[in-house]
Every structure is written in structure tokens, then in C-alpha cells.
């Protein structure tokens, strides 16, 4: 502990230096969440008689990129990003992802929703880690008003920020990965990379029935509300919610049988027809090579230049 660098600060600075920086993002996230919920601009009644994303004349480079290359590249790149250790390359990765986002021209609302989903876990890390990381020699500690046991370790803060940056960098790429091709095509690409075709079909089916069950659940919960159900911390609430879950399961298992019957009635015999044909060009591979090279450059910067 001798080589720790404690910086003593008066207690009154604590709100300024700790609570404010924490409160600001929290307020921003709350604001964003409200905005996203409010202003979900009505989608213009587009012409649904044409496929939403026709291949060939896609809007951007990412739209035209072969899905197999896209999936493989982004997956490998994500692993590279996830293994970065320093804040600087992580920040560069975030910048790079923002650039990709601009090239791909994907709807920003969806990207924001993804970031909001991350906020909980990352917020927890940002709050907890500065106070709980192990003390290493050379760490800078902010101690407020002499309360020594509650030292804010700047290394912990950096570590948490690095993790957050990496997570954000990867999360920002998910929307360009998924919304630049129809979901079935992307999943088909996955199956052409060796994942069983059934996985793709199962994801699609789950996705489809997710919506159906959500509506069912919503109607059931209004049914409960209308008979005076209110969520509280007590046994009656848990009992009612357990009934709700039980009913949800009973209904969904029954529906499962009916869906399966409907599939068999239309000739399902254990296999789904392939959704699309994929063509790969040299440029597709070239983009992948460039992209992954960028990732490798980042890891070199991280491991060799910075670690020295």
C-alpha cells in the first residue's frame, strides 16, 4: 500500500467530482429513454409490395456486402475489440464503430435502444469498480474528507470505462450487422458458415412468436389490472404473477402444438426451404481483409505499443 498515490480532497468536492459525473449520464440515459419512447416517429406507410432490402442496389457498402463475410468479419473483429486492455484503443474502436454507423446509415433510434439496454450493466460496473478494484502499486486514489476506506481508485474507473467503451464499440456494430440485410438472409448466411440451418429457422420462429406472446401477456396483464391487481412486495403479488406465468406457459405450449400442426399441414417434414442464394465477390473478401487488418492494428497498438 505504500506506493499508492492518495490524493486527499475535501469532502465538499465529493459531489462535484463523483456524484455529478455519475448523475449526469444517469439523467441523460433517463432522458434518452423517454425520448426514444415518446418520439417513435410513425413509419411512413412504405410500399410493402417490394422487398424491404433488395440485394444488389442496397443503400450502402454494408448493404451490398456478402452476409457471410459480414458475419465472420464482425464476429472476429468483436472478439479482437473485446480483448483490448487499454482505454486509448478502446476509444479508437468506438470512433471506428461510429464511422461504420455513418457509412451504414442505419436508423439511429434502434442504435440508441441498444445502448440503453447496455446502460444497466455498464452503469453498475462504472459505479462499483472504482471503489472495489484491488489496490496496486502506483494506483491513484481519491480520498474525500479523510474517509480512507472509501477511496476512489482511478485505475478502477479507467478499467470500467475501458470495458464500457469496448461494449459500446461492439454494440454499435450490431445494428449495421443486422439491419443491412433481411434477418432471414443474415441467418441463412450464418448457416452457410457451418451453423445448422435449423438454428436460423428457430431464431426466426422464436422472433415471430415473441410478438404473439407479448401481446397475449399484455392482454392478460390488463385483465388482471381490471380486477384490481397491483404489483406490490407481498406474497399475493407473487402468487398472482405465478398464476400469470403458469397461464402464459399453458397457452404457449398449446399454441406450440397448433403451430406445429399448421407447419405439418403445409408439408413440413423436418426441413425448411433455403431462403436465399448468396454470391460472394472478391470485393466482399477485400472489405473483410481490410476490416480485420484494422482490428489487428488496434490490438498491436494495444499490446505492443502501449504495453511496450
Amino acid at each position: 500500500m505504500s506506493e499508492l498515490i492518495p490524493i486527499q480532497l475535501p469532502l465538499w468536492q465529493m459531489p462535484l467530482l463523483v456524484l455529478l459525473p455519475l448523475a449526469l449520464p444517469a439523467v441523460m440515459i433517463a432522458g434518452l429513454r423517454r425520448m426514444v419512447n415518446r418520439r417513435r416517429i410513425p413509419e411512413e406507410e412504405r410500399d410493402w409490395s417490394i422487398p424491404p432490402l433488395t440485394d444488389g442496389d442496397g443503400k450502402s457498402l454494408l448493404h451490398r456486402w456478402d452476409v457471410r463475410c459480414k458475419i465472420l468479419t464482425i464476429l472476429v473483429y468483436s472478439f479482437i475489440i473485446a480483448s483490448l486492455r487499454h482505454p486509448e484503443p478502446a476509444a479508437v474502436a468506438v470512433a471506428a464503430s461510429l464511422l461504420v454507423l455513418m457509412i451504414a446509415r442505419v436508423p439511429l433510434v434502434k442504435v440508441l435502444l441498444r445502448l440503453l439496454a447496455l446502460a444497466g450493466f455498464l452503469g453498475m460496473l462504472l459505479v462499483v469498480m472504482p471503489f472495489t478494484v484491488a489496490m496496486h502499486p502506483g494506483d491513484t486514489l481519491l480520498v474525500f474528507g479523510g474517509v480512507n476506506w472509501l477511496g476512489l481508485n482511478l485505475r478502477g474507473l479507467t478499467l470500467a470505462a475501458t470495458i464500457a467503451a469496448k461494449a459500446v464499440a461492439i454494440a454499435l456494430l450490431m445494428e449495421p450487422l443486422l439491419s443491412t440485410a433481411p434477418l432471414p438472409v443474415t441467418l441463412h448466411g450464418l448457416s452457410r458458415l457451418g451453423v445448422p440451418e435449423m438454428t436460423a429457422q428457430m431464431v426466426l420462429l422464436s422472433y415471430r412468436y415473441l410478438h404473439v406472446f407479448r401481446h397475449e401477456a399484455r392482454r392478460m396483464s390488463s385483465g388482471m389490472q381490471l380486477r384490481g391487481f397491483e404489483k406490490r412486495t407481498n406474497l399475493a403479488t407473487l402468487h398472482a404473477l405465478a398464476n400469470f406465468l403458469g397461464m402464459l406457459f399453458v397457452r404457449s405450449f398449446e399454441r406450440t402444438e397448433r403451430v406445429f400442426d399448421a407447419m405439418r399441414a403445409r408439408g413440413y417434414q423436418g426441413q425448411f426451404p433455403a431462403p436465399a442464394e448468396l454470391r460472394m465477390h472478391f470485393t466482399d473478401v477485400l472489405i473483410s481483409i481490410i476490416w480485420i487488418s484494422a482490428g489487428i492494428a488496434l490490438i498491436v497498438y494495444d499490446r505492443i505499443v502501449l504495453q511496450g
Binding site: R208, L210, T237, L248, G270
Partner: peptide
């Protein structure tokens, strides 16, 4: 392998079930 679609539909149900929030004191 025939029955895998059923698993997919059932998964959707569990997914929805896991979205249910239960209050516990001030948080949920």
C-alpha cells in the same frame, strides 16, 4: 430434429416470461 420448431416457439414464451418485472421494495 422434427420437433425443433416446437422448442423455438416455447423459447419465445420463456423469453416473454423473463421480461416480467417483480417489485422488491423500491426496486424491481
Amino acid at each position: 430434429s422434427q420437433d425443433l420448431p416446437k422448442v423455438a416457439v416455447v423459447t419465445a414464451a420463456f423469453f416473454v416470461a423473463s421480461l416480467v418485472h417483480i417489485p422488491f421494495g423500491p426496486t424491481s
